[in-house]
Amino acid sequence: MNGARGLAGRLAEHVAGLLFPPQCAGCGREVSNPGTVCGRCWSRLRFIERPYCAVMGTPFAHDLGENFLSAEAIADPPPFQRARAAVGHDGIPRRMIVGLKYHDQTNLAPWMAQWMLRAGGELIADCDVILPVPLHAFRFWSRRFNQAAELARAVAALADKPFEPEALKRVKRTRQQVGLAATERQRNVSGAFRVPNDQEIKIRGRSILLVDDVYTTGATVKAATRALLRAHAASVDVLTFSRVLPEI
């Protein structure tokens, strides 16, 4: 019986592949596997590789030595320990995030998570638990899912790490961050996050990996990190799929 079900499942996948062939996540060309990008789009991706700031993960144009810090990390040290991202945000990664976030393309999350796993290997190895940046309940209701949670769930599954989507709550209904200046972003998310009392046991004394889709100014993940530290997290690292990069 199980063999018959397996055969039926494979047949259904084959038929679906014929009727709806997978398309490149960047340009829509037909590709061999869903969630992948074609060769032309792959060549246009800007993967974030070393050398980069040991804290912020911002890439350097030249190798300045191990553990060298960016001006941002020195002038305005973040509450989290380290931040890493898989790719620069412009172009194809931006379109992938828009597809995941606004067009219900949740099938992209497992593929995006594979890139994040490569970028954040050291952070994932060090963490005890993986959390997404949460949505406010109203926005979750209107969107029906949290794109950060989809990415965090996929990363946790690939890394075989605990996933705790309820451990951090967004208690303040904030404006969309898109289009806001850096100082406006900070005010917008100030006090927006809290660890519920019954969830603190999942946070206290543990190393947390906080996952979001894109790192822009860092205002959101910094506010979320402060809430986790108030709940006595041992440390917080941040992993995102993409990052808005300065010109280098």
Rank of each mutant, 00 (worst) to 15 (best):
R5T: 13
L7K: 09
R10Q: 12
A12K: 05
E13F: 11
A16L: 15
G17P: 02
L19S: 08
P21I: 01
P21V: 01
P21L: 01
P22E: 11
P22Y: 12
G28R: 13
S32P: 01
P34H: 12
G35H: 06
V37A: 12
C38A: 07
C38M: 01
W42N: 05
R46A: 05
P51T: 01
Y52K: 13
C53I: 04
C53V: 14
V55I: 15
V55H: 06
M56V: 06
G57P: 01
F60L: 03
F60P: 00
H62M: 13
D63I: 09
G65N: 05
E66M: 09
N67I: 02
N67Q: 10
N67W: 07
L69V: 05
S70K: 09
A71W: 02
A73M: 08
A75M: 10
D76C: 06
P77G: 00
P77C: 00
P78E: 08
R84N: 09
A86M: 12
H89S: 00
H89G: 00
D90Q: 13
G91C: 12
P93A: 01
M96R: 10
G99T: 06
L100V: 09
Y102I: 07
Y102S: 04
Y102M: 08
T106S: 11
T106C: 05
T106L: 10
L108E: 04
A109F: 03
M112E: 03
W115K: 05
M116C: 13
R118D: 07
G121R: 15
G121W: 11
E122I: 07
E122S: 15
A125Y: 00
V129N: 05
L131M: 07
L131W: 10
P132A: 08
P132Q: 01
V133M: 03
F138H: 11
F140P: 00
R143V: 02
R144W: 05
F145H: 10
A149G: 04
A152M: 03
R153Q: 14
R153G: 05
A154I: 00
A156W: 01
A157G: 02
L158A: 13
L158E: 14
K161C: 09
P162A: 07
P162V: 09
E164Y: 07
A167F: 11
V178N: 06
G179W: 02
G179L: 01
L180R: 09
A181H: 09
R187C: 10
V189E: 06
F193I: 09
V195I: 08
V195Y: 02
Q199H: 04
S207C: 12
L209V: 13
L209F: 03
L209K: 06
L210D: 11
V211F: 06
D213L: 05
V214C: 03
Y215Q: 11
T216C: 04
T216H: 07
T220V: 00
V221A: 09
K222R: 15
K222L: 03
R226T: 12
A227G: 02
R230Y: 03
A231N: 11
A233W: 00
V236F: 00
V236S: 11
V238F: 08
R243M: 14
L245F: 08
L245V: 05
E247A: 08
